[in-house]
Amino acid sequence: MGPIGLQHYLVLGAILFVLGVIGIVSRKNAVGILISIELMLNAANINLIAFSRYSNKPIFPTTMPEAAYMDGQVFAIFVIILAACEAAVALAIILNLFNMFGTIEVDDADTMRG
């Protein structure tokens, strides 16, 4: 085992992302699809933090040179905030879907199909 490099984290992120994609296309349950979206957001977070850890120079000059390498972590925080918002709104939509159709299988909610 050599030292852990950036590519190790990128491969891990790619695996988790692909698992999320598989979950989205294979599930018919709305909650399952939402869970898979969360998986994909997590994989993106791994990539962001790995890039911030292994970047050698800051992209933008800043007044705090020692903090210039942490931009990726800040973006990861923003991603987590967005995931929280998205989960709340999507779960509200799922509750509404359940009230209207009595199920959350996305194939059964086909009222708008042409």
């Binding site: 988790l16 698992l19 999320g20 598989i22 294979s26 898979s36 998986l39």
Partner: peptide, 8 residues
């Protein structure tokens, strides 16, 4: 990877 596979 193992637990995420189980999620799917």
């Amino acid at each position: 990877v193992a637990t995420t596979s189980m999620v799917v």
